[in-house]
Amino acid sequence: MKKEQRLLIVTFSLPALLLYIYFFLSPVGEVMYYSFFEWDAVSSKTFVFLENFKVLISDPVFYRSLLNTLHLLAFLILLMIPLALLLAYLLYTEVRAFKFLRTVFFIPVIISSVATALMFQFIYENYFGILNTFLRSIGLGDYTRVWLSDPATVMSAVSLPLVWSHLGLIMIILLAGLQGVSTEVLEAAEMDGANEFQRLIRVIIPMISGVISLCLVLAVTTAFKQFDFILILTQGGPLHRSEVTGSYMYNQGFGMMNYGYGSAIAVSIMVIAVVVSVAVQKALNKAER
């Protein structure tokens, strides 16, 4: 490549590159930088090097929030992705009114997370909420719970709105993947005597493993950046029962004004999310081979 050509490429890529660096890389750099300081966002910063990380390692609330995040992740992987695949497959087979259903399934994605969280808050409310009222009305009053406080239910209760609001997006991604599956391969499988279930499990899923892998990575990042539903539904409480890493980071940063410690949590979340995503990718690649 000639020098002039290289210069031309650099010139044209520079604006996009600068924007990317400014909006994506520099905030990451800043958060990493702040994580080495004790700082309340107002006073001058005190350099403490790795002290915030040392505190984090022995912080039981952080471990609790990490466990809760994994609970959230389990819901996304074990409930949302299979359900999204099922719906995508139904649409792929062009069931009756599939175009209408495609829109219906996607609607939760375009509803703001605040509205979704408030809606679920009304559903879970102890005395006036739809869920407990319904249970009482059908004679299952013993099964009513304080869904957003009971340690046995709170994490599942805050996970469901997340599943509901992201299901449509994952379904669309999987549907796009399904539409890329060659019809010849499916016909060949049919001629070989494979029934619908066998075709799904043995042919289609392996052929869209790349797309499923993308969905898994999205699930990991969604779980680790989760914050809005928790903030509106429980604020991480009561007593950190529903604290996730995202809400803990926010509460430390803005609630307690521990910006340095909040940044250390953010860095840890980033590292853990990257490690988990890479592990998921590697596991899938290995399974594919």
Partner: peptide, 14 residues
Amino acid sequence: LVLGMALILMACSE
């Protein structure tokens, strides 16, 4: 080059 620009932008934004 990328790291250099990131540092300059960080300094500017702070």
